[in-house]
């Protein structure tokens, strides 16, 4: 019987960056969201100029994936087509939607920005992560009223059982009005039930709650 385990998890909230429950970076409590995201980026010591073109939610998701792989590779890229990315949140892309809507209010200077518009879809953050890590497998973005571990565990487990993926990155990512909240977990098959944290609804909920403020 195939079992799945949570290999590692990362989380970012308004206070800190966590990796497997351990604090990796604590934000200055007076810093603004953009500053926090930039501090987290600088602390990684990597160069990825595209980061600065992203909206807050994509930056947040990108950082969460980056912290998860600790500067290494998230997955063996030769297997990139077998890596799934299943994300979720409540607000979809509402933070950027509101910003884009603002740009439509002035009829005299009607200049909607394609660079902003492109981020008005929930799954753009997934696209940014796929580009960074060469992930070419299954994609799905689920919207729920709150963190829905059951929906995520059920769907990801199905993907493994169907042979639609060999590894998976699953999580929650939401940046809205200056509040940051993400939790990403990398999921893989295991034959040793005792090794690590099993990927089930209870454990995924536990991880999500652990990473709460």
């Amino acid at each position: 019987m195939m079992k799945l385990k949570i290999n590692k998890w990362s989380a970012i909230n308004d206070r800190e960056v966590l990796l497997n429950g351990e604090s990796k970076l604590v934000f200055d409590s007076t810093a603004l969201t953009d500053q926090k995201l930039e501090v987290a980026y600088r602390a990684l010591g990597v160069s990825y100029p595209k980061f600065f073109k992203m909206d807050a939610q994509s930056k947040l998701g990108w950082l969460s994936a980056e912290y998860l792989c600790e500067g290494g590779k998230l997955f063996d890229t030769s297997a990139s087509k077998d890596v799934a990315l299943v994300l979720s949140n409540r607000k979809s892309s509402l933070d950027t939607d509101e910003q884009y809507q603002q740009s439509l209010t002035n009829e005299e200077e009607f200049l909607p920005s394609p660079a902003v518009f492109v981020y008005t879809l929930a799954n753009i953050v997934a696209g940014e992560i796929c580009i960074r890590h060469g992930i070419k497998g299954e994609n799905n973005f689920l919207i729920s009223e709150s963190f829905d571990a059951a929906a995520l565990v059920n769907y990801v487990t199905i993907l493994f059982e169907e042979g639609l993926c060999e590894q998976c990155l699953v999580g929650w990512v939401e940046a809205y009005h200056g509040t940051l909240r993400s939790m990403f977990a990398s999921i893989a098959k295991t034959t040793d039930e005792k090794a690590g944290l099993l990927f089930n609804i209870e454990n995924l909920n536990q991880v999500y709650q652990t990473s709460e403020l």
């Binding site: 997934a126 580009i131 992930i135 070419k136 299954e138 639609l164």
Partner: peptide, 12 residues
């Protein structure tokens, strides 16, 4: 049959 994928190439 079903399947999805990502180009891992460009967002727009």
């Amino acid at each position: 049959g079903y399947g999805s994928s990502n180009d891992a190439n460009h967002i727009s």
